[in-house]
Amino acid sequence: MNAQITGESDELVGLSVIDSNDIEHVLDIRKKDGEITGHEQDGYPDDPSERTYSEGEHVSQARRYAKYYVDQETEHDTLPWDLDADQFEAVRQALRALSSEEIEKYFGDLLAQSLSHYADDPDVDIGDTSRPEVLPAEQIGGEDAVIYKQEIYLDDSGAIEAVSDIGMTYYVARGERKTVWRGDTPDRKPDARVELFPAPLVDPAPFRDYLVYNLRCQIRDCYLMMGLEPPEEYRVLGHGQYRFTGKYDSFDIYPPYHDFNADIPGYTLEFRPDLPITWGELIGLVDSDGDQSLYDQIKNTLFSR
């Protein structure tokens, strides 16, 4: 992807974007809110319904990249908060700095909600954890077919100031999903939002690392959705923003970046949670000649209090 600003008025920035198929897009972006007010290109059908999925995705990438380019090259804030990789990184660093007590303070309900899915799993010690929020009755696909979300707000110093209550995304019919939020949220745009599937993490420290890794994957998504290769630090495998997971899962234009086991050159799984023992001690628990699976050998250490 390449871009060049071609003109500017009091309200708009005009630019030319060359996408990864060498198709030129000519766009006008409104300075005050990043709205695209004009978009012309000759490489794909003008009617979105007549484009293939790949063609439609290239058009969308060009539009996202245009907003990113103007945001980076001018003083105008044209990038949506949920594609702002720099701001996500600031939140990621703020999350990494939290103590176990602070994780309990800000994300204790999210941890309990996630862990509550393992109440009947004999391998996971959930203690006296109860589920803070009842799952919606209209949800289909089983109890675990849910994604939990929580929005994060930073103060002027870059520390976490507030979080929202829990949001839930679930399916109500085939191909139709719904998101509901519990409680109140601050009256401003968030700086980031963590999105996670239930995980059998019982301690605040590894749960913090789970949230940090999710944001790392989301930063990867920000670049990929603009048609860019992410910086090396963000070439990781795992779930990021759920709205993009479907693209990775279903369409050939993208490899399955969300899949922990995917074989994508240059991309690796790098989730290494803070465990109650060292990695050396954990390796010492493993008997390669034993009859038990690796999971059975280490589960008591990972999933017990």
Rank of each mutant, 00 (worst) to 15 (best):
A66M: 08
A199G: 14
M226A: 03
S304H: 14
G266E: 01
K247P: 01
S288T: 10
A199F: 14
L275C: 04
T245F: 02
Y257H: 13
G246R: 10
L111N: 00
D191L: 02
R92H: 05
L237T: 03
D249P: 00
K189A: 15
E133K: 15
A145P: 05
L269C: 09
A66K: 06
I140W: 05
D155V: 03
I140N: 05
C217Q: 06
V180N: 07
Q218R: 10
D77H: 13
H76A: 07
V17Y: 04
Y254W: 14
D120G: 08
G290T: 09
V124G: 07
D291G: 09
R216D: 10
I5D: 04
L12N: 12
R188E: 01
T6D: 01
E57A: 00
I160V: 12
Y153M: 13
P231Y: 13
L282I: 01
Y223V: 00
A119D: 10
E8G: 04
I36N: 02
D28Y: 11
D47K: 14
G227M: 06
D296V: 04
P256L: 03
L110C: 01
D274V: 00
T129Q: 07
L154V: 03
I166P: 11
E57M: 00
S54N: 10
E102F: 06
I253E: 14
T301W: 06
Q61E: 15
G158N: 15
P45W: 05
D28H: 14
L95W: 02
D184A: 14
R64M: 08
R177G: 13
T52H: 02
A262H: 08
E50I: 06
P276I: 05
P80S: 05
E75A: 10
K32V: 14
